[in-house]
Amino acid sequence: MAQIRLKNVSKRWNKFVGVDNFNLDIADQEFLVLLGPSGCGKTTTMRMIAGLEEITEGEIWIGERMVNKLEPKDRDISMVFQSYGLYPNMTVYENIRFPLKVRRIPQDQHHERVMKAAAMVELEPFLERRPAALSGGQRQRVALARAIVREPNAFLMDEPLSNLDAKLRVSTRAQIKNLHHALKTTTIYVTHDQIEAMTLADRVVVMNKGLVQQVGTPMEIYDRPANTFVASFIGSPAMNLVSGSIENGVFTSDGIRIEGLPHRASGAVTLGFRAEDANLAEANGQIEAPIYTVELLGEATMLSMRVAGELVSIKVGKDYRAEIGDLARIAIPASACHIFDQSTGARIEA
């Protein structure tokens, strides 16, 4: 078990910048999620920690050791790959045992440790099968068992759930969370799925184009997104973003007017609000526009309408019914609004 520290870490291929000046301290026992769209540098960052990718600049420390020059095998970490990386010629038992064997851990411990790891992920009935004879979820669990069979400094997981179907993803997610609770090993988890990030993480690092956008707990990132990228990436549906101008705490744009906003901002800004923070207005709403489409979700109804050229989504009660083209009046409380600088996208604090 150990803390992991990244100091000014960068990765470049010729002119292409994969990761730019990444700084982070990961505490012992923390569950850290690297979140971002594909190509944002999150997997590269993890692979540099694992030693599978050379570091162009900066330092990576695991515990008390600077590991830049160490081979993957000498970093004492274990990793779960997106496509699991199971050894097809070995049985499940041999797969789980492999790290013990190549690390020359005394033979007499092998059986006990393999059985313990297999029990933790409920694999006992399948130990004599080969990976080809397993379902996707079972293969996933073999990869997990292989990672936990020795007690490494840290677990690295690279989109481990992305090859599973939706239902299995939910149950395996819970299993990973439970394993972390039981083992308390520092874990770095890469995903592009914001729900996985929200549910699993102690802290989330949101990345885009090689740059860290925001570091914080899931609630911080949800409640106070640092910029428009984070705002539009977190939450389902994504935060509505409308460009307009603000003067003396009044935001106006085509089809929208909100009063009572903080006075600090002025000029051209982007206003953000979440679908679930808006509601139907009794009389005069902040938005008055014709309905573009109505979607029934079951627990709620989702309206969308065009405001200042953008489609915005509004979550209303599940019994609401209207036709496409009807006029809707929407109330948006000023306290639920986020204001971002229009040119940089950065959040403007109240």
Partner: peptide
């Protein structure tokens, strides 16, 4: 797949 040799190297090879 590259995952295979990378798993092995992380596992201690």
């Amino acid at each position: 797949p590259k995952d295979l040799d990378e798993s092995a190297m992380v596992d201690g090879c």
